[in-house]
Design a binder for these strands. Structure first.
Lengths: 354, 354
DNA sequence: CTGAAAGCGCTAACAA
DNA sequence: TTGTTAGCGCTTTCAG
């Protein structure tokens, strides 16, 4: 029975490389070499080391390693919320790649709080994360923006990469879904189906995603010569409840519309519930479209027309950028999106619906 | 402009405590004390240190700290899959607590692969994680079980805690939803509504959750004197597609049933889709019940009757166990569950449905 | 209250 | 090919 470092007391005994040395009867060099691979080690020494490692159930102290190496094998991932399937998918994509490369993901939920995002970056700086992936729309607060830029610079000064996903930042690599283009696509689709009174449920005004998707809607409507009614534009949280409340508001205010464009699928889900409760049928009375194409969308009735954002793939791309050291100039990958026509959009009813 | 360690070359310059010392003109002791708080430091020194920390944008190297301290502030979380809302919710609960305590979560997706789970535990051992939370049903492979137990012991030998969530393991604290009791509740509900031919869509045979939920179903049926038809029991992956395939199989085989009990909500969602495609109405033709009460379940039509498992709360409880050092004896918290009656269960139709 | 110094566990020169 | 050794950046005695 191999025992770890023999301290007199019964204190928590960590097995170190020295224990392996002793058991294998070699110096630290061969041990380290066997563990890292790719260096010349005699077959005999290798065998003894491997045996000792097995016997002692030895695992290297990652901190000692990181302290020496300046690379921690840690990937920081800061998202708005894991419980939101949009982010869960992105994380799943990131994990696919990290798992294959022997890295570990440190997951941070900012809950869209700028200061907590900043605090996480700082902690990840302390962890000497090899890369920090920041996913989700940018928050518009200028103080925050400035501080974020500052932290990003320091991160990079430490030799870490910073990758944003779904937001643009000077100085960082970015993976950007074509929010504007996607919104344009849905809006044009709605118009082509004959809608002229299109209500908009947009996200929080402070998020860049909100602005981008709204811009696409605007562009399509302008192009079609459809006038916008400010009363038909309501914003809410990017969540099921946000969409629900926004739709209720729309319904209460009494403006006339034949279709709703929700800025993301969670909001579309909420809007659908509100319409159902109000006794309105989708798409017979009101058409509805969302954005993102969350996996769960298939199981909603009617199936919701939306824009497919390849979240998982985006996660993988972020990791690809994180791992390929990259040149000096920040790289931007625009991710194409596509319209997914399902059952929630139809021609407007003969008589306009409230 | 404060510059970091002044090496001749332009190598990645990390700011260390020595830079702070120099700028604040003190020795390392006060710096460390200010950073850690709670130790006597003169006001003047404290001010200078704080100023220097700010000027240098200094963050302590977590690895150096962990190397000395034997506590890393890292919580390892191993789950089956982030993209599954069940686990996403658990992780969200864990994060609530870690965020408040200044710890960081290292998230690992095992994708239900025993060897990858084991590999992650080993990596987390290397990270000197303060605790490892293992969420999701246990995998039945005996070799794996033995190795898991071995790794768990080592983890604990290193002073780390191990907490399981949704599975029982000798030697680890556990947070256990009442799977058996919940399944019993739904099954009894189905029976009380008049169902006698109840099909079961169960999870993978190798998972402990599967056995527990199946046992609850059995118990209720036995109690009610309802005979079980093995042909009405199909297993599949704990996923939407698993449920879909299982339901299709059920439909194809041609056994007669008036209700389906799906062992989790994702499977219930898949089963619902299969029933819909087959032209069967829920609950008019077939009743359907699930398990877990995923948040998205509200938005499915008809709303699915299920068992509420407080996933988020379970996540919080895991962290509570992780943080409160705990005595020697492993603690087990059983989490009560409750039946949530919605629209997917009704009395069986007059004539039995295929 | 503060300075000096040892050492956590590892890797990578460098010398043998 | 292998042994020796010097740190990586931090905390924490131990003196002062």
């Amino acid at each position: 029975m191999a025992r770890a470092t023999s301290r007199g007391s019964g204190r928590s005994a960590t097995t170190t490389i020295m224990d392996v040395e002793r058991l294998a009867d070699v110096s630290p060099t061969p041990v380290s070499r066997v563990l890292n691979g790719g260096y010349p080690v005699s077959a005999a020494a290798r065998d003894r080391v491997e045996q000792a490692v097995r016997d002692l159930n030895y695992v290297r102290n990652a901190h000692a390693q990181a302290l020496r190496a300046a690379s921690s094998g840690l990937i920081g991932v800061i998202i708005h919320d894991v419980a939101d399937p949009y982010f869960a998918e992105i994380v799943a994509g990131i994990q696919e790649v990290t798992a294959a490369s022997g890295r570990l993901v440190v997951l941070c939920n900012s809950l869209r709080d700028p200061s907590s995002e900043l605090r996480y970056i700082e902690m990840l700086r302390g962890q000497r994360a090899d890369a920090v992936i920041l996913a989700g729309g940018a928050i518009g607060d200028p103080d925050y923006q400035r501080e974020l830029l500052r932290q990003a610079r320091w991160l990079q000064g430490q030799g870490a990469r910073m990758i944003t996903c779904g937001r643009y930042t000077v100085d960082a690599d970015a993976v950007l879904p074509d929010n504007r283009g996607g919104a344009y696509l849905v809006a044009r689709h709605l118009v082509q189906r004959g809608h002229r009174s299109i209500a908009e449920i947009s996200g929080p005004p402070s998020l860049s995603t909100t602005a981008e998707r709204a811009a696409g809607l605007d562009a399509a409507l302008r192009e079609a010569g459809v006038a916008r009614d400010p009363a038909l534009s309501v914003s809410g949280h990017f969540s099921r409840d946000g969409g629900y409340e926004a739709a209720r508001h729309l319904l209460r205010t009494g403006g006339r519309f034949t279709a709703i464009f929700a800025a993301n699928d969670m909001m579309a889900l909420g809007a659908l519930a509100a319409l159902r409760e109000a006794g309105l049928r989708v798409p017979d009375d009101v058409s509805l479209a969302g954005f993102d194409d969350l996996p769960i969308l298939r199981d909603v009735v009617p199936a919701i027309t939306t824009v497919r954002v390849p979240m998982r793939e985006m996660g993988r791309r972020c990791m690809a950028l994180a791992m390929d050291g990259g040149g000096r100039a920040p790289r931007v990958e625009t991710i194409p999106v596509e319209l997914v026509e399902r059952q929630s959009v139809a021609a407007p009813p003969a008589r306009q619906q409230v």
